[in-house]
Design a protein around this nucleic acid. Structure first.
Lengths: 114, 114
DNA sequence: TCCATGATTCTGCGATATTCGAAATGAGAG
DNA sequence: CTCTCATTTCGAATATCGCAGAATCATGGA
């Protein structure tokens, strides 16, 4: 991940409406959510949501596929991971203990129900 | 971490100059870096950097302490971790395997030299 | 006290972002 | 083909951000 890609991704997420949409999509997993249903759940006009989804999509954070009359959006988890990695990658330069909390939350993430 | 705090933090990081400054500070660890030296390393005017550091500081991502005539900035790792956690926390709602890469990079982070 | 140094605040203007009504596009049904 | 639903694109008003020159504040030394 390069600096400019990271800035683009962070800019895309640095907006309440887009961040809410992104988090809904994160929860939805690979199945994704249709643009119209997303607009209904977030209570925003379809055209406003559409431009915001375009920004997230241009940043590489989400992707879209057409299913009949609907367009389904879903998260590009690889890109999301790369962005998080970019923010984390130098965190051990200072002292190792700094990123221990990060390790713990990541471990808890994959083992939420064990 | 609430939504608005997250948006504030992401907005603060969604700027090339601020992101570069933040990453330098992340590498510097708890010792931090003086504002003047940061401005020299980043090759930006001191007043421009100062306002950008104020934005990062207001977002809770960094803190400052005075040391003689210099002001030392350093990362607030707890807040940084909280922000990353906010982005990760729902990633297992869909399927567990999604966040496996996140676990791996977090594990590698704390064990870079093993 | 007076000066030098480091850092911040003030200020103004140009650039960019956000929003949503209206119009256009794409896709299936009859 | 036409109608309708779902979504996107256009356009223009409004708001916000980013930058750097100049002035101001804070600290330490002579």
């Amino acid at each position: 991940m390069e600096m400019k890609n990271a800035v683009t991704g962070l800019s895309a997420l640095a907006h309440e409406g887009r961040l809410k949409a992104f988090r809904l999509l994160v929860r939805a997993g690979h199945d994704g959510i249709a643009a119209g249903e997303l607009a209904r759940r977030l209570e925003v006009p379809p055209n406003t949501l559409s431009s915001n989804l375009a920004i997230l999509s241009h940043a590489g954070l989400i992707e879209s596929r057409r299913a009949g009359k609907s367009v389904i959006y879903s998260v590009q988890y690889a890109h999301m991971t790369a962005l998080l990695q970019f923010l984390m990658e130098d965190c051990c330069g200072g002292s190792t203990e700094i990123c221990t909390p990060l390790r713990e939350l990541a471990l808890a993430c994959g083992a939420a129900d064990t």
